[in-house]
Design a protein around this nucleic acid. Structure first.
Lengths: 295, 295
DNA sequence: CATTGGCATACCGAAAACATATGGGTTGAC
DNA sequence: GTCAACCCATATGTTTTCGGTATGCCAATG
């Protein structure tokens, strides 16, 4: 069963004439006549009653005609749907984000995305530092909004912004009375650290900062998210050095102060598989850049 | 968009491999690979991600795949439906019948038909002597159960039985006391006649009968149906010469008597367009023969 | 480094489709 | 009644497309 024959069949059925249909199909009449007869041979029954004034569907022909239109439409629709997905007008994108960015970026990013790609299904998944590469590689997320960026040969990274490091402390801490805290004042104080994968420049940035100032802070806890870090800070377990945007999600009782003599920052990046060529990724990147630029 | 390509596409998508799909399709791998690429060219986007371990649908491919299966199924279903209709397993048949047969034949014929062709839509339409040809010719009925048969060059007739002519009279008529009425006794009595189209052998049969016996009956009324005829008989307007089966629908007060020295009868026939080749007509004919044989 | 597995390309023969030309049957007009 | 017009079917040659075989390329594996 060939779709072209079905298309010819429908044309002839609608025109009630081989000649008229051939004209509409921009082809000669004889080959169309042949194709119709081949279709009838394939079905095993006459589909048209040949009259002297044209052709007319038989009952069997009517039965086929009833389905043929739908089948043609469905095939065309499938092709169109594929094109729409390929072009980014339709589809699905699964956005991974790290918790530290949830408060600062997502509330503005989500409406921006819905405006830019209205036909696209969006879904969101929180990523942790230890699983984000895997989620990209197994395609369970299409793009990841990361802080800091991922470094992996299969993963493409676009840096879209950065956030300065700040000191997070309990509001009762004596340091909180300072407008900006000199790094030297941190010497010997307990530090709540985020995970430290080998190539992760997040804690590297903190480590580098302390090293540069020859300050040592004993690590009292390692936690997965900035939220946990701030909880421990509130509990008085120690201090944390976090990107400024974390401040938005800080509990009452935790305050942030700039570090006076440090300009260190952590990158915000959009990351995706190198072999994902969906145009939705570009669109997502544009939206994210726009939102992050206004932080 | 070719249905074969769509079939190939589905096979590759399901096998997640060109080679495996080619095997399942009983063809070599290279031409299948070529067809897939042609489909991708037609869509204008890659449908598969080529990995080192096989092929995997892209998002666009998934969009197409979601519709492709349905389109294939619908096309196959259309072909099957056409075959089913052509073979008589499915379809629709519109049965025309003349009123005179309604009581004697339909109550047995309808269940017989439903048993024989369970997948077929049946509908019934009463025909009158003056419209039955037209209803067949314009295909508003597929077959007609007629009494007497139709004679027309475009219409095929199968005689399936006959009914003897009987005399219908009011129960109070002196003739009703006889077991059988000699035709000679009808001389001069008023006759309720059925319509008399030129080639209609119904009234011809009655006319021939009377002529043969050299009996003259003045015609006092012409009516369309035996029902009307019997009503007029009941009203005392005259007598009617009707097929025996009309007796079943006779109102109380009208009785039938055989004609002693006449064996005249009227045919029961199934009629259909010569160019209708539906196998349902054969089946219908068989059912009608079976039912009429038991009258 | 060789081998294996999987897809892509090249080329050739076969089959299918299309166009042109023509035949046959019916309708309708002069 | 003949003739023209109309419409579908058939015939034949050319072009397109399809499928098969041979082979190349690349990556993963041992």
């Amino acid at each position: 069963m060939d779709l072209r024959r079905l298309r010819y069949f429908v044309a002839v059925a609608e025109a009630r004439s081989v000649g008229k249909a051939a004209e509409r199909l921009r082809m000669a009449q004889p080959p169309l006549s042949v194709q119709i007869r081949k279709l009838e041979a394939e079905i095993g029954a006459p589909l048209f009653r040949r009259g002297t004034r044209g052709m007319d569907l038989t009952e069997a022909g009517q039965a086929l005609f009833a389905r043929a239109g739908e089948a043609l439409a469905l095939a065309a629709d499938g092709a169109e749907a594929a094109r729409a997905v390929a072009s980014g007008r339709r589809g699905r994108i699964s956005v991974g984000y790290m918790f530290v960015l949830a408060n600062a970026v997502l509330p503005r990013l989500i409406p921006e995305l819905r405006r830019s790609i209205p036909g696209v299904d969006l879904d969101f998944a929180e990523l942790t530092a230890s699983t984000r590469e895997a989620r990209l590689l197994d395609r369970s997320v299409t793009v990841a909004l990361c802080m800091p960026a991922i470094h992996h040969p299969e993963i493409q990274v676009a840096r879209i912004g950065a956030q300065p490091l700040m000191l997070a402390m309990p509001i009762r801490s004596p340091l909180a009375r300072l407008g900006a805290v000199p790094v030297a004042r941190l010497q010997g104080r307990p530090l709540i650290a985020l995970p430290h994968p080998d190539q992760d420049p997040a804690s590297s940035a903190v480590a580098a900062l302390l090293r540069r100032h020859q300050v040592v802070m004993p690590i009292v806890s390692r936690v997965e998210t900035v939220h946990s870090a701030m909880s421990l800070v509130l509990a008085g377990e120690g201090l944390a050095i976090l990107p400024a945007c974390a401040q938005l999600g800080a509990p009452r009782g935790v305050v942030f102060r700039p570090l006076r003599d440090a300009t260190d920052s952590i990158d915000i990046a959009v990351c995706w598989r190198r072999d994902s060529h969906s145009p939705l990724i570009r669109t997502f990147l544009k939206c994210a850049e726009k939102v992050v630029a206004r932080l």
